[in-house]
Design a binder for these strands. Structure first.
Lengths: 141, 141
DNA sequence: TCATTAGAGATATAAGGAGTCTCTAATATC
DNA sequence: GATATTAGAGACTCCTTATATCTCTAATGA
């Protein structure tokens, strides 16, 4: 059981977009080069993020993507739900009510999710930005 | 991203074995019937649990499986490690030190694991046993 | 010796992840 | 209005993993 690569790409893309100047658009070409991906592949991921309302797209020449207006509220969990779906990690396949094992697994998953919900992308972006200003080199996300 | 069915089968098998009378052996045949699985498939899972030291096997006629002597200390996480491996759920594939995104993902995973580590199989077994005694019917794990 | 049981290995099938290619639709610029 | 540029949809390929099944071997009690 592992998070897909797509989730990693999505998270990095989101932080990158948050760090852009207000209202500026970034094309999939640039976003793909940054992460050494093919544009068509990344565009599939970007479409998911768009449909989830996390970013906004503008088609046509000089088009591209920008972060959604709700950027101050976007959590890690929001991005992960967009790429991984929001089904639970564990379901007891044996049909009966109130499986005690399932209950434990659900509680554990909830603990992970509550952490991911409390972490906002904008906080990571600001932390990366301040580190970058201090160090003059390196990339922190 | 989901836990494999094998993990579900392993957890149920472990709780079932804990509830057995001391030193009694249960064959893979019985364990498989209980969960509506083929014996050969379940035996692959049982082999993993054996190699992880969570259960002990006795080959030959009248052989079978019993819970390991450390049964009072076996956690959910121990079983999950045996079936799923113990690699982390997320790795930032972009090569650089101290990725802030990775750090958040690791912390979230740690929160889930600490819950799974604190939950012991024997507690679930006892809870299921007492519920079963009270209700006369039904299965609680 | 024989029946019973665990265990190893090869193989089969299906699903999902990862990625490419091609076509369509929208839009700015000339 | 023509053209270049960009997002988006759909079909397709390739690879890995999960989920088994079948067969053979090894150990052991009766």
């Amino acid at each position: 059981m592992r998070y897909s690569n797509a989730t990693n790409y999505a998270l990095h893309t989101m932080v990158h977009l948050i760090l852009q100047p207000r209202e500026s658009l970034v094309g999939v070409q640039e976003l793909a080069e940054m992460q050494h991906l093919s544009p068509t592949y990344l565009s599939k991921i970007l479409t998911k993020l768009t449909k989830a309302g996390l970013i906004e797209s503008t088609p046509g020449a000089k088009g591209g993507y920008k972060i959604s207006r709700t950027k101050h509220e976007i959590s890690f969990l929001d991005v992960i739900h967009a790429t991984e779906g929001d089904t639970s990690l564990f379901d007891c396949s044996i049909h009966h009510e109130g499986c005690l094992i399932e209950k434990v697994m659900w509680q554990a998953e909830e603990n992970m999710k509550s952490e991911l919900k409390s972490k906002l992308l904008i906080d990571i972006a600001k932390e990366a930005e301040s580190k970058q200003n201090g160090m003059a080199t390196g990339r922190f996300f």
